[in-house]
Design a protein around this nucleic acid. Structure first.
Length: 424
RNA sequence: GGAGAAAUGGCAGAGUGGUCGAUUGCGGCAGUCUUGAAAACUGUUGAGGGUCAUACCUCCGGGGGUUCGAAUCCCUCUUUCUCCGCCA
């Protein structure tokens, strides 16, 4: 959520930047917000004046009672009835105006950083770099959904029986590979200075709201209605919410947390080759990295996180490319996002495995995650997060890219974790 | 699940209807002393709204109520603790 004062002070700039995100109703909503805020201030001023008056009278009554002047006190009491009524009306008006402002503000996406390329579709994303070499597969090479069946690694049909489509069952070396990747990713993150967190995988409404899943993405989360809990779509939600209503010290920066969790996404309306095999699932595993930083440092941090993710992909010997997302393809909350995509050699397409974003104050404003600066002032921190990494598409490309007539070779760095060098 | 107790500032912990946004201690910050540090002493130290800046307003777990006036009384919800029951 954007800061109201920032919008007031930088209206033209905010509108200009929202335009690169192709947000249509920007001007209407922002004008309305500013107008409501003016009304809010005036209303509060009136209300405060009445409250001040009532406070003075109440104090006088106290003194009169103490002095035994009961009759004079009664006279003063008579004055308050009208004040109370006006106070109540103004308080109600204020509450309703504040709600209106809030309802409008949550509709406004984050303003993109000035570094964000213009554009509307994924084709407009800027390719920052491409690293590694795409493998030449042998003649009999097949996509991963055939490999998982051939080597009995993943049973998609069994998942349908137990739960439904998009809930695969991993078996034997398939299950072991999952566990190996999780441990490898967590060890890497820990070595890079991230504190490992094992959070709940269900969150309450407050948490879902604070990181922006609610109100707009309600349909994308699984909802346990009896207890009003939401299954998390990413570890970002519980981990970032650790810092809800927290005032950090400047010396706490940078806050670096990582966590492994299953992630749950309803992903309504998806179909075709995009969802085949491991390409898109309702339940999948992901290691998330989160940082909270000083506003001056967040873009350096973003680059650091991007390089960190790249370093893992290099170790895994996967060809990948880095995209800087254009305005139209960015998420609602992001100010700047890099997507990392690995090459899936049998599908012959790029698969997104990580998305690294700087949210600036967009998340921390809703979270009320602040810090006390050197000047003693309390201000909003910046938040960033990224996947490091999501498992299914990594597994897909590992299986496809490393297939040989003898079997699927495991990258060297993973062997200590899997305990085997080849799947055959 | 049943019974009882509690929820106050970073922490501990006073305050049971009016001068309480809140005594005090610890912690934090600044200063005095010291070559430096410790100790001691002095000062300072919650958040939000509002204002050019003051005034001023709100917040004592959340919500509602009583009252001229609520941290303090009433209702309700949530959470924590103790005891009992059940249990991986």
């Amino acid at each position: 959520m954007l800061q109201l004062n920032y919008i007031r002070d930088n209206k033209e700039d905010v509108l200009k930047r929202l335009a690169t995100k192709n947000f249509k109703d920007a001007e209407t909503i922002i004008n309305k917000v500013i107008e409501l805020d003016n009304t809010r201030r005036a209303t509060q001023k009136d209300g405060d004046a009445i409250k001040a008056e009532a406070n003075v009278i109440a104090k006088q009554i106290g003194e009169l009672m103490k002095a035994g002047k009961k009759e004079e006190a009664e006279i003063q009491k008579g004055k308050t009835a009208d004040l109370k009524l006006r106070e109540k009306n103004l308080d109600e008006a204020l509450k309703s105006i504040e709600e209106d402002i809030q309802n409008l503000l949550v509709q406004v996406p984050n303003t993109p950083s000035t570094k964000v390329p213009a554009g509307k579709t994924p084709e407009d994303n800027e390719v920052v770099n491409e690293q590694g070499t795409k493998p030449e597969l042998h003649a009999a090479a097949v996509p991963h959904w055939e490999l998982t069946t051939k080597y009995n690694l993943i049973d998609f049909e069994l998942g349908v029986k137990l739960t439904g489509p998009g809930f695969p069952v991993y078996k034997g070396k398939g299950a072991r590979l999952q566990r190996a990747l999780i441990n490898y990713f967590l060890d890497k993150a820990t070595a890079a200075g991230y504190l490992e967190i094992q959070p709940p995988i269900m969150v309450n409404e407050d948490s879902a709201y604070a990181t922006g899943q609610l109100p707009d993405k309600e349909g994308q989360m699984y909802h346990a209605q009896i207890d009003n809990f939401y299954l998390i779509p990413t570890a970002e939600v519980p981990i970032t919410n650790i810092y809800r209503d927290v005032i950090l010290k400047e010396s706490d920066f940078p806050v670096k947390n990582c966590g492994y969790t299953p992630c749950f996404r309803r992903e309504a309306g998806s179909y075709g080759k995009d969802v085949r095999g491991l390409n898109r699932l309702h339940q999948f595993d992901k290691i998330e990295i989160v940082q909270i930083t000083h506003p001056d440092k967040s873009y350096d941090t973003l680059e650091e996180m991007r390089e960190y993710v790249a370093s893992i992909l290099k170790e895994l010997e996967l060809p990948f490319r880095t995209l800087k997302l254009c305005g139209g393809d960015m998420s609602f909350a992001s100010a700047l996002t890099y997507d990392m995509e690995v090459w899936s050699a049998a599908q012959k397409r790029w698969l997104e495995v990580s998305s690294v974003s700087n949210f600036e104050t967009f998340q921390t404003n809703r979270l009320k995650c602040r810090f006390k600066g050197a000047d003693g002032k309390t201000q909003l921190a910046h938040s960033l997060n990224g996947s490091a990494l999501a498992l299914p598409r990594i597994v897909a490309s590992l299986l496809e890219n490393n297939q040989t007539p003898e079997g699927i070779k495991i990258p060297k760095v993973l062997v200590p974790y899997t305990g085997f060098e080849i799947i055959n």
